[in-house]
Amino acid sequence: MDKEINPGETIIHNKNVETALNDDQVSMSTMQFSRRSLSTQVTITQRAYLEVFGLKNYPVGVELGEEEMRIGRGDDCGLKLPLHGVSRQHARVYFRNEEYYIEDLESTNGTYVNSIRVSRCVLRNNDQIEIGQAKIFFIEERMRRKSI
């Protein structure tokens, strides 16, 4: 979690929820191929990122994993924001029940989601988080795709 962010860099965490659909030996009579052969090639991928704007030489993207990500000025933050108005440990993003949440860690200047000050909020695609001078977009992708 202890990573310094370089401009333009995307840090990939180990989150890549893959659910292989499985179905034993079922073939559908109306189809040219078995359901199994179809479904074993499909994976559902869920990925989420924080994209930071408002900093010199940024944006920067951080991929979220299942572990908690701390946001703040502190060296131990997964997303380090060396900015005015950002507390040492400002907020955290965590994953629970297949959802991402942001929680303010009693920061001095508050955590905002879509311009509203929050203590905690479930995150949805394209939510705009404001922490100090930084604007951070939460981007979530859910894909069903054929694996090769």
Binding site: N114, I116, V118, C121, V122
Partner: peptide, 28 residues
Amino acid sequence: LWTKYSPKYHTADPPMHIFWAREGLTMP
């Protein structure tokens, strides 16, 4: 609706912050 109505009130004097309430939001 939020995009349509919020800027006018956000920048008014005094401001009024408006939003459409959403599940899973906790406010201090």
